[in-house]
Amino acid sequence: MKKLWREFIKGIWTENPIFFIVLGLCPTLAVSTSVNNAVGMGVAVIFVLVCSNVIISMMRNIIPDKIRIPCYIVVIASFVGIVEMAMKAYAPALDKALGVYVPLIVVNCIILGRAEAFASKNPVIASLIDGLGMGVGFFLALFVISAVREVLGSGKFAGFAIPVTFEPAAILVLAPGALLVLGLLMGGIRWIKSLRS
């Protein structure tokens, strides 16, 4: 139990995919312009990551080591395709909110990274917890970045105007702002971590 808890917590803090492993930066930079986008992408990633980790872990004894990467890609891509079609048909409201992000997840390297680094070597339950922890870690990191960018860049939070006494700096919602905020946050968080150890 304690080991599983550690697998979960490492994705959120010590091995956070964005701030410490630095994986999946492309969607992070592109999607963190507003909190709504970040939540949509975060939820979609948690879902796909947990499921792909479980499937890869179940197949870990069938897939030979030498051809594992093409196997993972086939499994993940077809799984995402199935989820997308099912969502469009049976949950159109959910598809409207997450639809844009789900196809992007196929190319999110966190998914392939966790399949390679964890799910291919560990039992199903541990892989599920690892996927959940990494997904939640990605979600939280994306949430923090997008909150900073949206509040300071457009004076809003999750689409609602908040009373601000300054002129919002539009550069923060544009592409350079993503790199500025990500870099400063990454530096700050690593500094806090170095103080604690």
Binding site: I63, I67, V75, G81, M85, K88, A89, Y90
Partner: peptide, 28 residues
């Protein structure tokens, strides 16, 4: 052996995709 395994995985994956597509497409 590797070719066979990869072919089987691809076959199963595309069969699943095809099945899901034929069920969901009219609804979509």
């Amino acid at each position: 052996k590797y070719t066979l395994i990869l072919a089987v995985i691809c076959f199963v994956a595309s069969a699943l995709l095809g099945a899901v597509y034929s069920v969901t497409n009219p609804i979509i």
